[in-house]
Design a protein around this nucleic acid. Structure first.
Length: 484
DNA sequence: CTGGGGAGGGGGCCC
DNA sequence: CGGGCCCCCTCCCCA
């Protein structure tokens, strides 16, 4: 005999215990805010917690502390409330971040609901704001089977909108349906995804600048797979040192047409060893700062990409359909596969082209070349002050702040810089000077030139900013020639 | 506070 | 298909 109310009653009791801080044996620290919960509940609800708790299940006497910096307390509150009640309070404002956090925490049900929430917005008048949805406790069972349609009911406040049940379309990770083939479907999805996409692209820009700031701070990019601070930071106008890789989790999840097994991107096998410690998120951040990790993840991404990335599109009636390649992480499409591969670097964070002088890494060789020429070569042979042409003999490079330029000796004397000239010795500063054939030709040219320059310019002193403070030791050690 | 310029990043497309 | 060029955009620094 089965008493149907038992499950919900049990969950209610657990929730009451949580609220009264009874038997809570796990503290979750989210950006300084502490949430108390029960280990077994978290274990049963989240793949992420399952992994962490299974690693530390031996020590049960002390309350466990988990730290997250990849989503906001508000977001975690939504998720925790769902865990203990089966009710997911989704709004148009928080769906992105909840989805991102759910991806990070490996909570498949929430992910599916978020997807459906976005999809369903296609059919819902956009004027309607604040879509409240709740996931039924039944569908919130601990059985994470994506193939099973999860049910959630509308919890909209408008009384005229009675609660409705939606069923999430079956996910077919290995299905034969080629969702990429329907460009009209793709286009229609853009309508609903546009708003969120705007947020993402904005954040992408933010992140881009954040990366720059990090680089200025001497930090290489961190990659928080499947998790992010997302748009909250943007809304708050805060500069958040979080990297794009939520693209792999969040943006990927966003693309409802995508058939890639999203969990492949949300799960971090490389971090398994790190899971033994509780601040795994931090540890992953540290781990993910290495270029090798980027490349590993990029490789993982490339190999796990769906075979079919092209979408057939007919731009104009009567035109022959043209194959375009769609990014699995965003709505961007390109004509050529090579362009897609290049584009994917902005999602994977892969930077195969390190500057051999300062260790800074770039996504493209041309960017590296430009960087080298402008930063390390100061190619413009014009005195910045008097604008007269100078030569290697009549002028020298000075550095002021982040700017590098040339001054003729006269202007240099007038300027009376405090900068202490430092000899630029490419041989010392280029850890890969003996890398042989793999070196790009511009580098060889540079070497020849610099040999001349060092001989000629040394008397004047080439003021080269020392980036040693900017580059973490591990990066400096791992600066390698171009990896391809 | 604001505008200009430098630096970096990304897309399109040609070779 | 990779390399390279051009263009545009954004961010940051500085005057």
């Amino acid at each position: 005999m089965e008493i149907s109310s038992h499950q919900s009653h049990l969950l209610e009791q657990l929730n009451e215990q949580r609220k009264q801080d009874l038997f809570c044996d796990c503290n979750i620290l989210v950006e300084g805010k502490v949430f108390k919960a029960h280990r077994n509940v978290l274990f049963a609800s989240s793949g992420y917690f399952k992994m962490l708790l299974s690693q530390s299940s031996k020590e049960t006497s002390q309350p466990t502390i988990a730290t997250f910096e990849v989503f906001s307390p508000e977001t975690f509150m939504v998720i925790l409330d769902f865990v203990y009640s089966g009710i997911l309070s989704l709004t148009g404002q928080n769906v992105i971040e909840v989805m991102s956090a759910a991806s990070y925490l490996q909570m498949t049900d929430i992910l599916n609901v978020c997807k459906t929430f976005i999809k369903s917005s296609l059919d819902i008048n956009e004027k309607e704001k604040d879509h409240y949805l709740s996931l039924s406790a039944k569908s919130a069972s601990t059985e994470p089977t994506p193939a099973r349609p999860a049910l959630y009911r509308s919890r909209r406040k408008a009384k005229s909108n009675p609660r409705r049940s939606y069923s999430i379309p079956d996910e077919k990770p290995n299905g034969n349906e080629n969702s990429w083939s329907s460009y009209s479907s793709y286009l229609s999805s853009q309508v609903i995804l546009q708003r969120a996409e705007t947020q993402l692209s904005k954040r992408g820009r933010k992140q881009s600048s954040t990366r720059k700031r990090r680089k200025h701070l001497g930090l290489s990019q961190s990659r928080e797979l499947g998790g992010c601070k997302s748009d909250r930071a943007e809304r708050a106008g805060a500069s958040d040192p979080t990297h794009i890789s939520q693209g792999s989790g969040e943006e990927a999840e966003f693309d409802a047409e995508n058939e890639v097994d999203q969990d492949d991107f949300g799960y971090h096998p490389g971090a398994e060893a790190a899971a033994k410690r509780w601040s795994v998120a931090q540890l992953e951040q540290e781990l993910s700062r290495t270029p090798e990790f980027m490349e590993l993840k990029a490789e993982e991404l490339y190999t796990s990409m769906p075979t079919i990335l092209g979408v057939m599109s007919s731009w104009n009636e009567g035109d022959l359909p043209r194959m375009r390649f769609k990014c699995p992480f965003c709505t961007h499409t390109v004509k050529r596969r090579a362009d897609l591969k290049r584009h994917l670097r902005c999602h994977t964070g892969e930077r195969p082209y390190p500057c051999e002088a300062c260790g800074k890494r770039f996504t493209r060789l041309e960017h590296l070349r430009n960087h080298f020429q402008t930063i390390h070569q100061a190619g413009k042979l014009i005195c910045r002050k008097c604008k007269r042409q100078v030569t290697e003999l009549t002028g020298c490079v000075v550095q002021q702040g982040t700017r590098r330029y040339r001054l003729c000796h006269k202007c240099l004397a007038e300027a009376n810089f405090d900068s202490i000239p430092e000899d630029f010795n490419p041989a010392e500063r280029s850890p890969a000077s003996s890398t042989g054939n793999k070196r790009p030709k511009w580098d060889l040219e540079e070497e020849q030139k610099s040999e001349e320059e060092t001989g000629e310019e040394e008397p004047y002193g080439l003021v080269v900013r020392h980036n040693s403070d900017d580059i973490p030791d591990e990066v400096k050690e791992k600066v390698k020639p171009n990896l391809r």
